[in-house]
Design a protein around this nucleic acid. Structure first.
Lengths: 201, 201, 201, 201
DNA sequence: GATGAATGAGCGTTCATTCAT
DNA sequence: TATGAATGAACGCTCATTCAT
């Protein structure tokens, strides 16, 4: 019992550190000093290193967790996703949920430990899987134009990332770019890839 | 006379600093120490600060110059660009020319001084101008599908940036992602936006 | 009863700490972190400080105990030691027994709390006592050359310590320097101090 | 000219750091913090690292220099050393000169970077060379007893080191142990190894 | 009494910036 | 003007010690 209480407390602190790191990084980026995370979490600087041997280790855990969480979330949308429309609508919902951190990740990925690339790959490939399933179905049904799936995917992701990375260009302050522009992105993208006879002729 | 010589000397050093900073940042990213730039330029560390009060100032100048240079280069392609095909082909040429630095810029822009945003905006709006001219002409000619210009633009840029930012995903080592994938990107994008009667019907 | 059990428990933990500290220090030196000792002992880090107010205090106890133990052991050899030959042979035996920790002690003594000096003094003076008894007997018998006892003692100890401290110079890895060189040291030393008529003349 | 002045100043600072490190380490041992050395040298903490990439590098330079200096000094005494008496007398002089640092070196050698072992080896082998030359000459002349040279050497060094390492045992405060005990050590050692007919018979 | 999570002073190191020359 | 040695604030990390449980 007592042991369990302790462990719970330790896990709470660990969780607190990771959650704080998550939110601080979301706000200020990955180059935030460990001391700031500690301060923000209301713990001592040394405590971080009692839970994570190095800052890289904290980052790796954060990224891995994030990849798992967002990956799982993306997996779930397979069920609802009978159509591209729905899949991408759900994708946007997920993105909005994780928007701040995800934006930092895709933006700073190249300066981060390798785990960042893995995280990115996990998220991307999970989405790609469902995307290609749905798209290929729609292509064979004739509702989506017959174009290479991977390029359709890269186009969608490129478009969304473009908005996420240039957030300050599109939105002021801390508004969600996905909230503001998601519907427009979606409708445009669909219009572009769909095989709607008669519409553009 | 002597003064003039000095000024020439000074301008030469300034130029040397900026050119070296450009190439060093292209290779190693924006977080390269100022001492490395000085070393690489063959000048003293202090010289940098004799020409630029702070590193931020150097960066601002660098970015502004880059914006001007790439902006000018993009302006030039208006002449050759009688069609989207040609415009984007030329755009890819320009990108390949500036690929390394441009990739760093779009990747690290958010951690950089505000000037970075301006630079980015200059480049982007210059391109956007020509893009919209050409696109709208083609739309009215019926060769390009009737879709919102700014979205067509963002899609193209998003797609290209997606490849530039995930260079290590697509290309090994230092190969040019534009050289390797440019043609595929172009042909796919054109296929997607073009109103090629008979093809998809 | 219960109290007594507790006390036994407490003494056991205390003993465990000291024994572990002894072996860990023997292997890794005195600069080993307290957390490592706790871990190795299979107790909590805090337990060390429940038994010893500071690490210095633990060290002091350790050193004092070691002094007593090795001192007692050295006392015992008085009985067997009818001759210098036997005394030193026994001394080497004792050294081999305590070699690892003893080497650390003489090597790091000066960075240690004052108790280290006392410990060292206890061991040294115990040995010195028996040494001088035997030596003086032999000198008066004429079997050992008439030289100042304390210098004979310091020479012996200096020689032995020289080998212990430069262990990596003489032996590879973890071999016992005393095992490897003890006999040579002994025979040489005896040859040097003995009054063997006819041999060197 | 100007360049030369600068270089001289830099060399002065470097020298100042090394000299201060030498004296601070002599007084307080090798575990002294870099900040203390900087403070004592009257320079900023960062300056140390402008001259030496790491503290290990400073130590290595210090040790290497010390080895060279003391090695050279020991080489010089070959000339004066027509006899063991003179050689060892001169050896003691050199030791007295370098006593504090040398004591720290032989005491803390095992916790130091590998360079320390090299330094120690340089000094030792230089001395050993001259020692064996002189000793073997004297042995063949019959003035020194016919004993293994390396053991005679180790005995002498062991005896001297014993006094140096137990300085606080023999001398109070900062007095030189060599100054106080050198003559006694020398005369005893010589008496022990010399083949003085008639004296002990 | 034992626990072990939390603490925080202190370490070696980096690097943009300053300033005497 | 150009130099480059010197600066010092800030960083990630260690570890003896504390204290609520």
């Amino acid at each position: 019992m007592r042991v369990s209480t302790r462990q719970v407390q330790k896990q709470n602190t660990r969780k607190k550190i990771m959650e704080t790191a998550y939110s601080v990084i979301s706000n200020k980026g990955f180059s935030v000093p460990s001391s700031v995370i500690a301060e923000e979490a209301g713990i001592s600087h040394g405590s971080i290193f009692a839970h994570f041997p190095t800052m890289n280790d904290l980052l790796n855990n954060l990224l891995s967790d994030f990849g798992d969480k967002m990956g799982a979330r993306l997996h779930m949308l397979a069920k609802k996703s009978d159509s591209v429309d729905n899949l991408l609508k759900e994708h946007l919902k997920v993105l909005e949920e994780y928007e701040a951190f995800y934006s930092r990740l895709i933006s700073e990925k190249n300066r981060l430990p390798d785990e960042a690339k893995t995280t990115f790959a996990v998220i991307q490939s999970t989405l790609a899987l469902h995307f290609s399933n749905v798209i290929e179905r729609e292509i064979s049904k004739g509702t989506v134009r017959k174009l290479p799936t991977h390029m359709l995917f890269n186009t969608w992701l490129g478009l969304v990332h473009y908005y996420l990375m240039n957030k300050d260009f599109f939105s002021d302050g801390n508004e969600s770019v996905i909230k503001n522009y998601g519907p427009e992105l979606l409708s445009f993208y669909l219009k572009m890839i769909k095989n709607e006879r008669g519409v553009y002729e």
